[in-house]
Design a protein around this nucleic acid. Structure first.
Lengths: 362, 362
DNA sequence: GCCGTCTTAGAAACCGGTGTCAAGTTGAGG
DNA sequence: CCTCAACTTGACACCGGTTTCTAAGACGGC
């Protein structure tokens, strides 16, 4: 046989008596490896590898033949072996410090829907940015797992130290944040100032004049953006937003309650409040109840997020909807494709329900 | 040094101009491998491997020396390479179909705290048991990822088909369910009948006589257990639980609302309701409001779960607390240790708040 | 002193893929 | 007919670990 393509010398290891002796071994239907596919197709494993990786340098005929065999056997390459050779795993991590379960689960859903059908898997990794070992923890996590990439929702997305580590480790990432902080192909911008603007515009249209804002912690970018958009809308309607009507909460129910109590004790009392998120809006509801005030008759409230809880409240909360799941899907797609993805549906939008109305004539 | 171990010939790949375009690549301080440790310690890689895996057949002196070097270099074995050789990854999957974000996040937290400091990672995998391809999807997922193990919260934990697949694939698992369905070392039992009993006992003690129950879908084991415990408590107090006072909901707000509406239209009207979960309790709150009834004056309500939302409701909800995070931690620990873990704090317990009171004299 | 056993250690193959590089074919151009 | 480039393909080393098998010493018993 002069020029027959050499078969990958199948060095038959002389029937290892033990392992094949068990009659039950028959059922152990070991799943096919790249070597099996190569042998069955009469090509080398390298060629099979090329086909798996969509290399362009393969003859169409060969490609078709091997692809057929792959389909017939149901062969799927082993992610660990591939990862080892690539020096890159097929794991995508979501690193987060956001405490809201609804937000986390929406994010995960979006990411999962983006990686469905690919070889990627999602690993979750909560963190605490205030821990002294935060950066070194993250470094060893990313390095050891040889992560394919990382998704960063707020507020970790604002952590330049973390991003620097990721760059050093040559780990891809996509940041989800209220404003652009990085190259467009690694940023998914949520435009929180637009959400704030919509909230302000809505309350102004209702005719409110004394309008308050309970913000989140001012160290977050999104908090600043929401307030900025909100103030702009009020200004356009000739309404002032004095400093004393802006209270800093912490995105929690309790902080919303506390800020609500303060606002409702003021003279004159604000007739409307824009809460930085729904959780704090729920706190403000509680404060209103404590003061014997009725929503929306005595106080209009606008939230932000459109949590499921905003529908549980009574009356149902007017709020700014964030398409979190969709945003996460887009971000994950960007990460995988390594390119910006066209999207026109990531903007926050006003959802009018029953917690806002014209102010009562005083 | 006669028998010096062969060095892994470090084939310097001649500075690939393109991919190393980033100047930062220069400092790419490659992390140490098992070969480096072996060379530095003057032993073979197999010996290092033995030490990593706590094999007993290593001389104490050698072990100490190598361990020192490992500590000095900060060496950590590569999970992918290890997984490839072991034919088992270091991934633990949480497969779930529970729709509650609070529950999912609590579970994840518990699992993450159990695997912290180990080489395991958590991958999340929601599923839909009603999909025709459910079992084959799960099979290929588990097989391809060569999962170390799987955690099954309700209701997937009740799916015997899935469990059979896991056994076939030789994949370890731990099931979290209301009653024991399997060997003790793979079961974490939540004893929902006790929670139901506590709810019933509490309402009976308040003096209620006409008590209703809004259950979840009866196909779930937990639903049956909660009802069984509840009915037993009532029976012990000489209270009947007629069939028509047990309505089947679906663990959703909407189904709670619908069942609440039905109950409150009855004559005589029940003075207390035990909801199968907090979400449905919230729906019952809404129904009470629609009927102009006040909680707890006109209607006492007990929930189940102790969601964060149960504190957002007004009045705060009396409910049965499930230590979800702790349960998940226990289950994950069992999975890793491959043995039952002693636990005495996985029982549901009554949390009395303000949604229950003595019935009004009619 | 010889031999079997126990302890400790290493060489080589292997897990299932990919990168490198060289070689065989083919067709166009001289 | 020869040369050269383009196109395909495969051998081989390698990714970073583990398993198998073999062997060198140490030790005790005969």
């Amino acid at each position: 046989m002069p020029s027959r393509p050499k078969q990958p010398s199948r060095s038959k290891p002389a029937v290892k008596a033990r392992s094949t002796a068990t009659p039950s071994a028959a059922k152990a239907k070991r799943r096919p490896t790249i070597n099996d596919i190569a042998r069955m197709s009469g090509v080398s494993k390298k060629t099979v590898s090329r086909i798996i990786n969509d290399s362009p340098v393969v003859n169409e005929e060969t490609r078709a033949k091997v692809k057929r065999i792959i389909a017939e056997t149901g062969y799927v390459p082993d992610p660990q072996a591939r990862g080892l050779a690539f020096r890159k795993s097929f794991l995508i991590a979501m690193i987060y410090d956001n405490p809201s379960p609804e937000y986390i689960v929406s994010m995960q859903k979006g990411i999962l829907s983006a990686i469905e059908g690919t070889s990627f898997q999602l690993v979750v990794r909560p963190c605490d940015r205030t821990k002294p070992t935060f950066l070194s923890d993250m470094r060893s996590f990313v390095e050891r797992q040889r992560l394919f990439g990382v998704l960063l929702p707020p507020s970790v997305s604002e952590d330049e130290g973390l991003v620097k580590v990721l760059r050093e480790l040559n780990c891809d990432y996509v940041r989800i944040a209220s404003v652009s902080l990085d190259k467009p192909e690694v940023m998914l911008v949520t435009n929180d100032h637009i959400g704030g603007y919509e909230a302000g515009q809505h309350l102004a249209e209702q005719g409110h004049k004394i309008i308050a804002h309970v913000s989140g912690l001012k160290s977050f970018r999104s908090v600043h953006e929401r307030r900025r958009g909100f103030a702009r809308a009020l200004a356009e309607n000739g309404i002032d937003l004095p400093e004393k009507l802006v209270l800093e909460g912490a995105y929690t129910f309790e902080s919303g309650l506390a800020c609500g109590e303060k606002l409702l004790a003021m003279k004159p009392r604000p007739t409307a409040v824009f809460a930085g998120n729904d959780e704090m809006a729920a706190g403000i509801y509680r404060a209103a109840r404590n003061h014997g005030l009725e929503i929306p008759r005595d106080l209009s409230v606008v939230g932000y997020d459109d949590n499921p809880t905003s529908l549980r409240l009574w009356p149902p909360l007017t709020t700014i909807r964030i398409p979190t799941e969709n945003n996460a899907r887009m971000a994950a797609t960007m990460l995988i494709k390594k390119a910006p993805v066209p999207h026109d549906d990531t903007l926050p939008s006003l959802v009018v329900r029953e917690s806002t109305a014209k102010p009562a004539k005083s």
